[in-house]
Design a protein around this nucleic acid. Structure first.
Lengths: 214, 214
DNA sequence: CGGACAATTGATTATGCTCAATACTGGTGG
DNA sequence: CCACCAGTATTGAGCATAATCAATTGTCCG
């Protein structure tokens, strides 16, 4: 893997809450808000990359596809989170809005900021942790990991309102829809969670869920 | 996830082949070579992070553990590659030398460089791609992915000399040792690879292997 | 040469997948 | 307002891939 002019390779612009940059008087990035409808594509694999995105509202799925249609969602992006980093100037995955979504799209600049690096690192550690889930956890454990992660990121008591379908969850956790559904039913039967409706899930015993995933 | 002073969070120093920095006269990082024996630990999860490492020779495994001992190797690091990026100043995984290994350890500085960012991105995309393997590929497909990746990174014709055991490969691919062994036997029986010895594998039909993984 | 570790192979089991049927939900139009 | 319809979710039955348990074989060092 060669290390040549990485100037060409990646969007490097200040992102939200960039106090350090604001104070130092460095040039701010050009940014604008773009709106996407449910299931609208944001960028495709192979597409030229020139921007990074910060979710203002809504949520986004990032995924890879195999030739026969198998799909792996590598991440969900929730409000406040940043995505769209690319190598070789080309996106390696697909991005779609899961629901109606507003994104702050920021144009390519050559400015290195700590916030950029921090966002990339957040993406990286998130992916790395997910490897453990996909490689070594059982179906119910994967679901517990997913619910706890969503709860942490959405942060509203012990109840999460999921934007994504069972199909999306399955493709994120490396399972099938049926297994996701059965797993949730099982967690509910065991008293660990409560399904208020299919997309609104309350964690009744968060500590027990944590115990499942570590 | 708060975005405060990321200065505390990550080692940011110039790394190898840093022509831009060298030319510009910016201060070079303090760096030194450290040697590790087979299976020697480099850092542990929870340990204070203060350095990043560049592999000069040998190879390294990075992994997570679950409480009951299940292990997921998130990456193998080969000569020329960089690892050790951390968040919150604390390592999130374990690092061990797979064989006798020399590392260029570089002290923490606050210098942002394009090479650093590029190294983090390389780590990130590698993890992201591996999610597809763990989430959506069958055992033989995972093995094909692994062999092709090793061949690309080691780059010596169509023959790879693996430093790691079947057990390491299994923990990297989310399989058991037995399944790895059976998968390799199967690929050999089908004429796709040839096992010169257990650790020395030749790809007889690289194109067919590529066909398996996409 | 011997002993420990590593790798392979076999038999059986189990987790999650596939195929199939049914239930639920939300939006639309009569 | 309610009935209908399409998409979404749940549940069931049988199957397949990979895990587990177990026995051999192979290999690298001392």
């Amino acid at each position: 893997m060669s290390i040549h002019s990485s100037r060409e390779f990646v969007a490097l612009v200040p992102i939200g809450h960039n106090d350090a940059v604001a104070r130092s008087g460095m040039p701010r990035a050009i940014s604008q808000t773009a709106r996407y409808a449910k299931d609208q594509h944001i960028f495709d694999q192979g597409e030229r990359a020139g921007k990074i995105f910060r979710v203002q509202s809504g949520s986004v799925r990032l995924y890879h596809l195999l030739a026969d249609g198998r799909r792996q969602i590598s991440a969900f992006c929730l409000p406040g989170e940043v995505f769209g980093f690319a190598q070789q100037g080309t996106h390696e995955l697909y991005a779609e809005a899961i629901e109606d979504t507003a994104l702050e799209a920021q144009s390519l600049q050559e400015t290195l900021t700590e916030e950029n690096l921090h966002a990339v690192l957040a993406n990286f550690f998130s992916a790395q942790t997910h490897l453990l889930v996909l490689g070594r956890q059982l179906a119910c454990e994967r679901l517990a990991s997913f619910l706890l992660d969503m709860n942490r990121r959405l942060g509203a008591g012990n109840r999460v309102k999921l934007a994504m379908s069972r199909n999306d969850i399955a493709d994120y956790l490396g399972l099938t829809v049926e297994t996701v559904s059965r797993g949730l039913s099982r967690l509910q039967k065991d008293g660990l969670i409560r399904l208020h409706d299919a997309r609104s899930i309350e964690m009744m015993k968060p500590h027990a869920l944590v115990g499942m995933v570590e």
